[in-house]
């Protein structure tokens, strides 16, 4: 039963992911990416990682992708399928994709019995696995340094954005007595 659900959801996810790269219209692509990220959150729920699922939707589907969509719709980009990408770029893209696919395949072949739970299919989950408490404990003990460094990285990004967005102060034009610009 759960395997059937898994394969159904996996098929939808793969279709959405294909939609991201095959749609000529950037808005459609971005919306397919939202769907894909949403489906990934569903898989996190299947894997009992409820908190990660919620964060995935809030951060990626809800915030990051909305910013993507925001920029795309604001620029009003139209898909331009006539202009082919640079040939070298195409080769690089194929090479990267092939490497990643090979990596995934190797890992999958390493785990015999690839089912919804992956390598952990037969494993017994610890009490409270995937819950807020368990995740927070790991985050604030074993991975504290990485966690804090990520915060610093985000802070640097914020400062950078503020610096980039800052405008030169414009001197205000003095008004004449009639209220027109001098």
């Amino acid at each position: 039963m759960s395997e059937l659900v898994f394969y159904l959801l996996a098929a939808i996810t793969v279709l959405c992911a294909l939609g991201v790269i095959t749609r000529p219209n950037p808005v459609h692509s971005a919306l397919f990416l939202v769907m894909t990220l949403f489906m990934l959150a569903v898989f996190y729920i299947i894997l009992e990682a409820h908190l990660v699922a919620a964060l995935q939707i809030i951060v990626y589907a809800g915030a990051v992708m909305v910013l993507f969509l925001f920029v795309i719709t604001l620029l009003n980009l139209k898909g331009d399928p006539d202009e082919p990408a640079h040939p070298l770029l195409r080769i690089v893209a194929y090479a990267v994709a092939a490497t990643l696919a090979a990596g995934v395949a190797i890992v999958l072949m390493g785990d015999a019995g690839v089912v919804p739970g992956g390598a952990g299919a037969g494993a017994v989950l610890a009490e409270g696995f995937g819950g807020t408490r368990a995740l927070a404990r790991i985050l604030f003990t074993d991975y504290l340094v990485a966690f804090e460094l990520t915060s610093v990285l985000l802070l640097v990004a914020v400062v950078g954005a503020v610096v980039l967005a800052q405008r030169e102060p414009v001197a205000e034009a003095p008004l004449t007595e009639t209220g027109e610009d001098a």
């Binding site: 908190l51 919620a54 589907a61 809800g62 915030a63 992708m65 807020t132």
Partner: peptide, 16 residues
């Protein structure tokens, strides 16, 4: 278990 975060997550779909 994540009730309030779940609500924040689904309501963020409204923006999309």
């Amino acid at each position: 278990n994540i009730g309030i975060l779940y609500i924040t997550a689904v309501t963020s779909l409204v923006v999309v």
